[in-house]
């Protein structure tokens, strides 16, 4: 085997580290994207029996965004195994307790329930904020594109830019400004 072919072989089977910024992202929609990188489905050599999955580092999991009234509509079920041991926890209560749990469960649920799933989940690292340990950050070589643009708050836009922005609405002549 030539040297070039050998390097190509290493590059093919090496694990790539991806980073995903969860800020203002829907965890249930981004789980379908993260899943592909975790299982290696984005590679042409993918096969279920082929261990070609990558590592995904999720940051800012505290700032995920749920659609509509999902924070109080979604319930997470748990059963202790004892009679009367069922409990339903709302999404916002889960997120209060552990800001990494919703994205973790979303990715876990997006994958097929086989023996490989728990090993694949081991390759996913979640951090609630932007602080990632240095030894993990230096492995990262790729960034997964966000699904939704992060919205800008009105008070974060400079005031003169707000004033100079083209206007659509005109006040009637006898309006009293408040």
């Amino acid at each position: 085997m030539s040297a070039a072919k050998r390097v190509q072989q290493w590059a093919t089977f090496a694990r790539t580290w991806h980073i995903f910024d969860c800020k203002w992202q829907d965890p249930y929609l981004s789980a379908n994207v993260i899943k592909k990188y975790l299982m290696g489905m984005h590679k042409p050599i993918y096969h279920p029996m082929n261990d070609c999955g990558d590592v995904v580092v999720c940051i800012n999991s505290r700032d995920i965004a749920l659609r509509g009234d999902d924070w109080r509509q979604r319930a997470y079920f748990h059963h202790t195994g004892y009679p009367g041991g069922a409990s339903w926890t709302l999404a916002w209560e889960v997120h209060n307790k552990d800001p990494t749990m919703i994205i973790k469960k979303a990715v876990y649920r997006s994958m097929k329930g086989n023996l490989q799933r728990r090993h694949t989940m081991q390759r996913m690292l979640i951090y609630p904020g932007e602080e990632v340990p240095e030894d993990i950050m230096q492995n990262v070589t790729n960034q997964i594109r966000q699904l939704r643009p992060v919205p800008t708050r009105l008070d974060h836009i400079p005031e003169d830019e707000v004033k100079k922005y083209p206007k659509v609405m005109e006040y009637p002549e006898d309006y009293v400004l408040k």
Binding site: W24, D26, D63, I64, A65, L66, R67, G68, D69, D70, W71, R72, L90, A91, W92, H95, R148, P151
Partner: peptide, 14 residues
């Protein structure tokens, strides 16, 4: 308060 402090996005089709 409570669930209101977390980020929420909306779908205009609704």
């Amino acid at each position: 308060y409570a669930y209101k402090k977390f980020n929420t996005y909306f779908d205009e089709n609704t």
